[in-house]
Design a protein around this nucleic acid. Sequence first.
RNA 1: GCACCGCUAGCUCAAUGGUAGAGCAGUUGACUCUUAAUCAAUUGGUUGAAGGUUCGAGUCCUUCGCGGUGCACCA
Length: 505
Amino acid sequence: MSGSSSPGDEPGDVGKREAELRAARRANLAALRARGRDPFLETRFDVTAHASELLERYANLSAEEQPPQVTFSVAGRLLGLRKMGKGAVWADVWDRSGRLQIYVRADAVGEEAFAAFDALDLGDIIGVSGTVFRSKKGDLTLRVARFEVLAKSLAPTPDKWHGLGDVEKRYRQRYVDLMIDERVRRIFLTRSAIVAEMRRFCDAHGFVECETPTMLHVAGGAAARPFRTHHNALGLDLDLRIATELNLKRLIVGGLERVYEIGRIWRNEGIDTTHNPEFTMLELYAAYWSLHEMMDFNETLFAHVVEKVHASSDVKYGERTLSFARPFRRMAYFEALAQWGGLDRATLLDPAGAARSLAEMGLPPSATHAQALDKIFERVVEPRLIDPTFVYDYPVALSPLAKRKAGDSDLVDRYELFAANFELSNAFTELNDPDDQRARFEAQIEERKRGNDEVPAPDWDFVTALEYGMPPTAGIGIGVDRVVMLLTGQQSIREVILFPLQRPL
RNA sequence: GCACCGCUAGCUCAAUGGUAGAGCAGUUGACUCUUAAUCAAUUGGUUGAAGGUUCGAGUCCUUCGCGGUGCACCA
């Protein structure tokens, strides 16, 4: 807080080198204050343009041409400082949109101001005003007439050419990662654009955005261990939600017809490149829709978002290019297993047959029929699913919450969308028979008694809700983080989460 | 949870068991069209932590911490 220039103020445990670097910056801060330019007293700056706007607007301005006599004001971080003797400085100002070169001359800003500019360090936040021109080497540049120092950067700035290489540091100090690495910034700007576009799309199709509680007495709607928390005043232990499913369906019972929530979900599970303990899911429910309509909506939504974000239906992911052009490939669950694994439906629907197939693949035995089917699918089919593909007609054993398929009671009305070998969305027609739902909850109680703590405790009020009558409804869950991974080319979910959970140091 | 890999200057990285180095950044100086600016000089180290082996450890061994990847678990 104080204006002391002693390095003794610094956070503990900094090395001698870092202490020196900080001291040099403090000395420059003191120099600015001595000139009546205390950056921390500034309260505002009139930004009239962003770097990328100017670069676009004057893309055709040539070096010979008379530049427009219009003054623009740009604010951002000073990164890249090229001093040319006692009278001129070239530098880069990075704002959210990108980088703009600036040119500061003593004979343009005056000797006093030029001397003040000499007290700037890489990483300082400045506001500059002036006119644009194109330099002889071809870069659009702001000829600075006036500048303000808006904040001093007292911590040493990492090498802006290499960026941060230490993944741990990038996650722990994401602000540093973001400030010096445009690629990282682009990922999160794209993430924001994707979420905004999803929301717009849902709104445009008559869906109501709803916010349901994240703290629940009983976390249900999925199979996962919840995080627990505690409310002091009520003396209540609570679960953090593992899905928004049950509450959104209550809203369908309530008559809202089309609802969605883009919300944070917590699951107390392991961490890997596609799983994070907290993640974002778009859940959406449409009364009176069949699964066909949901699939159509799903396909249109993805095609739309990809087009908006990439201005193309192609998405590069790793070595491959995926096409999100409609229609996406469609394959029945057993058709895929037959085609790629030579496995037939009758064998797989028999628990013993599935176990045998599993063993023949050299996979360890599974506890349940459902798990065996999952493992087989994971081994045989998932590696084949590169371009977006709807897999439909799932066996009932895998889908406790879905309605059975009319005319084929071994299957349910459910599909999943895969791309780049992982699941992007999961949709089914929602069970609305309260007696059936009650029976399934009772079966889950038995399952819990057998020690499976990932089966949620029953939510009896949900059965009550169904007793009031829920229209036939199709529902879908979309893993937003995974969509972002796909559209930003990232191989790890932590690269698309701003502040991934880390152990304390 | 198991296995493997990593942790060296502010940042990016070197260093057969034998004097811990480079580039960038910083500091000083030169340069009023530079752009990873250039040129000259120069500062900077508890090698993640603690033990051990050794005449000698960044390097080998043990334990621990943090991270990454894979497997397991898991939609």
